[in-house]
Design a protein around this nucleic acid. Structure first.
Lengths: 235, 235
DNA sequence: TAATAAAGTTAGACTTGTCTAACAAATATA
DNA sequence: TATATTTGTTAGACAAGTCTAACTTTATTA
C-alpha cells in the first residue's frame, strides 16, 4: 500500500511525462511539480527506487516502472472520476473540481472507484476534456495541439485545457469558451502574439500564453495522419 | 486547519461521550478507542489542549471544548453523509460503508459536504440509523435503549446498531434484522442471557452480547416520558 | 576547453505521530 | 489505612517527510 505522498510523486511523474511527451523526468522538474525542494524529491526517489516503482540512477533521469505507472494511472483514474462526479452530480463548476479531487483521489477502495465509474455511466472524459483511464488502466489517446499553433483561418474544436488552475479556468469561461466549442482562428499578431478567435460568432483577443493552455483538435487534420509534426502531442 | 489525526482524536472523544452518556473521558479509554498506546494519546492531548480543542488537566478527565465539539460534529456529519451516499447511490451494503467513510470523512471542503447533503436530499439518519448532524451541527436526539434491556413480551423497533463492524453487521442481516424492523421479545434465559426474538414472524435466539449492540425504541414507551430510567440513553 | 551555470546529491536538523520502558498518581480492596 | 491495581505521565527513540546549507556532477557557453 502506497502512502498519500508516494502516490503524489508517482502521479507527478506521469503528469510530467504526459505534458512533455518525454518519459524521462529530472529531479528538479519533479520537485517543482510537487512544490518541494529538490533535496526532498531526491530522498523520496531513493525510496521509490527501493520499492521498484521508478527506475533511477544517481545523476540520471527518472522513469516510472510498470508497477509505478499502474499506480499512477490508478490515481489519475480516481482523480478524473471524482472531478466528473463533482461536476455532473454536485453542481461544482469547472474550475472548482480540481482542488477537491486532489484529496479524493487518495481514497483507498477499489470497490468505491468502480462503483463510482458505474454510477457515472463509465465516462470517457473528465470535465476538462482529459481522458479517464478505465479499470484496466487503458485510456483514450488524444491527438491534440494547443490553440497557439493553429494557423490563421483554420477551424478547430476545443477538447481540453492544460492549466487546471481556477484563475485560468475562470478566464476561459469569461472568453465564452468551453469543452467541444468550435473555434476559428481569425488573425494572429506577429509582434506580440495576440490571437483573435471567433467562438459562436463572437470575436475575442487572447494572448499567446492563454492559447498555449487550450488544447484543440484541428478540423483539417486527419487525426494521426496529416497532423503536422511538432505540433501534435500523443498521450 | 486540523490534521487527519487531530480530527480522529476529537471524533473519538465525541463518540465515547455518546456511548457512555458521560462527557468526561479518560486517557486510556481514548487510547483504546483509537488503537494507540496511552502514552501516544497523552502526547496528543497536550497538543489539543494547547489548541483549546479540549479541556484537560494532568491526571484529570478530558472534555471537548465548544470548538473541539464543533469540529468533531463536522467530522461525524461528513462520516454519516458519506455512509448514506455509499449505501444509497453506490450500492454498498450496510456493513461495507463504515470503512470507506472513515477515509472520506477527512476530505476538507465545506462546499462538498453541503452539496452532498443536498444531493442526498438532506437525510436525517444514516444507514445504521444514527442521526446526521445538519449544517449548524444540530442532530436529532434519539431516545433509545439496547435490545438487551427490553422486557419479555414487549415489542420494539430497531433504530440503530452500536457496533459498526462488518462481522457484526453481517450477523445482523443473517438474523433477518434491519433498521425499522419490528422486534418482539419472546423470552429471556436468566442462566446464559439468551434472548428469543421474533422478527417478521420468524423466531431467532440471540446472545446477550448481540442484544447489547442493537438499539431499539420500545413500543410502550412514550419517548422522553415513561422511558425507564437507566435504560434509555439520550444523545 | 576552461569557466560558469544548472542540475542533482548529501548531511544534519526539524515536525508529527507513534512506540517502549520506567515512573507517578489515583483508586480499589483486603 | 496500607497495599495492590489501575490509570496516567515522562523520557527517550524511531520513521516519514520535509527543510537548509554545503557540496558534486553534468551541461552550457564564451
Amino acid at each position: 500500500m502506497l502512502s498519500y505522498t508516494e502516490e503524489n510523486y508517482l502521479k507527478a511523474l506521469l503528469k510530467i511525462s504526459f505534458e512533455t511527451g518525454i518519459e524521462e523526468v529530472g529531479t528538479n522538474e519533479l520537485a517543482q511539480a510537487l512544490a518541494v525542494k529538490p533535496a526532498t524529491a531526491n530522498d523520496m526517489l531513493k525510496k521509490l527506487k527501493e520499492k521498484e516503482l521508478v527506475r533511477y540512477e544517481k545523476y540520471g533521469k527518472i522513469t516510472l516502472s510498470a508497477t509505478g505507472r499502474k499506480n499512477a494511472i490508478d490515481v489519475l483514474r480516481k482523480h478524473r472520476l471524482w472531478e466528473t462526479f463533482l461536476y455532473e452530480k454536485l453542481e461544482f463548476s469547472w474550475d472548482e473540481v480540481h482542488e477537491v479531487a486532489e484529496q479524493l483521489e487518495h481514497i483507498q477502495s477499489e470497490k468505491l472507484v468502480n462503483k463510482l465509474d458505474k454510477f457515472l455511466a463509465y465516462p470517457k472524459f473528465d470535465p476538462h476534456g482529459d481522458p479517464i483511464p478505465n479499470k484496466k488502466g487503458e485510456l483514450k489517446v488524444q491527438f491534440k495541439k494547443t490553440l497557439a499553433v493553429v494557423p490563421v483561418d483554420v477551424g478547430c474544436k476545443m477538447v481540453a485545457v492544460k492549466d487546471n488552475s481556477s484563475s485560468f479556468l475562470q478566464y476561459v469561461v469569461k472568453v465564452g469558451l468551453g469543452i467541444n466549442n468550435e473555434i476559428l482562428v481569425v488573425s494572429k499578431q506577429e509582434y506580440d502574439g495576440i490571437i483573435v478567435i471567433e467562438v459562436n460568432g463572437v470575436r475575442s483577443s487572447v494572448s499567446q500564453k492563454f492559447a498555449e493552455n487550450i488544447f484543440v483538435v484541428c478540423n483539417n487534420c486527419i487525426v494521426g495522419r496529416n497532423c503536422p509534426k511538432n505540433k501534435c502531442e500523443i498521450e
